[in-house]
Design a protein around this nucleic acid. Structure first.
Lengths: 240, 240
DNA sequence: TGCTAACTTAGGTCTGACCAATCGGGCGAG
DNA sequence: CTCGCCCGATTGGTCAGACCTAAGTTAGCA
């Protein structure tokens, strides 16, 4: 499976990292348990501590372990989650100067499906979270509060789809969109009202187990949002 | 934009990595140029070489630099691309033991949009790749060859969308689905023929710049595939 | 002129020492 | 006997310096 397995890589630290990664993913070290201490790995692998440490560092960056210092510290195994995807997506966005367009396109492709699945599989608990998010959005709070509640609702829809992967994508996307949007203050009371209305309507479809309505309304909602953002972006681009 | 900036982290190597990352993203080191040599960074930062090396390693894992050995080697700046997204998504899929259903659902949500964008933005080069993949699929090769060519075609559609995020997601998804599917030999000549036909039809829509047809046909194609896989999976589940 | 060998520069690994963060347990005060 | 503080053990973090390996550059020889 690979990526790095194709080429022997020859670098000792890569080899060790690869081996440890495979052992972790194979379940040899259950989540939450610690890998052997560095000095222990040194005697086991007959490599220097420098090399061992570089390997652990690689795993840390990949989100497979979390390293704690101090006694009873060590490299604790964890499952890479949305955070890891979000950070790499964030880097791509910043590095490639990805147009906001690409982000929005991606979201337009994912969210309607989330809504459809949510309408099919939602539980009562999911509904409660959605309702709570809607209430928070309706409250006339600060812009930051509004944006946060907005993100919460969208993520809640993804969670209600009971699809871990879509949820992860949405979390990562929301974060990236949120981070890139906060400069543009195009959110006025009008936009807020429209948003609240759309969310309520979609929530209703999810509540009623109506996948087709959910997907249709969500599609319209995110599409409208995307157009609004792009319009503003064009304006600012011209301004600058 | 933040993410890691919130917590000082206190680890010297993280601090250096963070600083270098910011400088790279700010454009201080244009793509393709090399960062200062390790020993040079040592004198500049007054840190040990160990620490400097760990920092560079972090950037390498994050896909921001590519390290080459030998004279005129060094850490060459590059923009993180789909590969980086794909690998982190791949880790999530493997790490979380994502269900096949979830994979297929996700693909059903992403690919139609890829097809739509491909129909809008495809270049002649993209078309050439698609045609080549179609030819490879049509050849009566081994099962492995067929599956590989199949994946190549699907990835080519994503690439033709010219959306780095979607491409990265699709790369990871395709690989994961491929890896989980090759055991189930439900691919007979009939399935092959159907696949070839569907691909040609979608390719035609992309060639003709017909987004609606592309999205419709792709939707049907991946949906049919998903149903076939799930049916087989149910059967095997009962068998076992 | 063309090829090879030595040199030079850069990353890769090793050793061994010491620093820093934690946690556990022992010991003394109340 | 209990609570709290301090010491020390364990584990990661950093440092310094040496040597190895990879790969261009260049000089010298045929």
């Amino acid at each position: 499976m690979a990526k790095a397995a194709s080429v022997p890589a020859s670098k000792a630290s890569d080899v060790l990292a690869h081996e440890l990664r495979e052992r972790i993913l194979r379940g040899e070290f259950p989540e939450g348990t610690a890998l052997p201490p560095e000095r222990e790995l040194v005697v086991q692998t007959k490599m220097s501590r420098t090399t061992v440490r570089e390997s652990l560092r690689i795993l840390e960056v990949q989100g497979l372990v979390r390293i704690k210092t101090g006694r009873s510290g060590g490299a604790f195994v964890q499952k890479p989650g949305e955070a890891s995807v979000a950070s790499s997506v964030g880097l791509v966005i910043r590095g490639q100067q990805i147009r906001m367009t690409a982000l929005l396109e991606t979201r337009e492709s994912i969210e309607p499906q989330c809504a459809r699945l949510a309408a099919k599989y939602r539980t009562d608990d999911d509904l409660a979270v959605l309702d709570a998010a809607n209430e928070a959005i309706a409250r006339q709070g600060s812009l930051a509060d509004f944006l946060q509640a907005n993100v919460d609702w969208h993520v809640a829809v993804a969670v209600a789809s009971h699809n871990e992967l879509l949820t992860g994508f949405m979390r990562a996307l929301s974060r990236a969109i949120y981070d890139s949007t906060d400069n543009q203050g195009f959110i006025d009371d009008d936009v807020r009202a429209t948003t609240v209305k759309a969310h309520l309507s979609i929530t209703r479809a999810i509540r009623d187990h109506d996948p087709e309505a959910a997907v249709r309304r969500m599609d319209r909602h995110v599409h409208a949002y995307a157009e609004a953002v792009l319009e503003v972006e064009e304006r600012t681009a011209i301004d600058v």
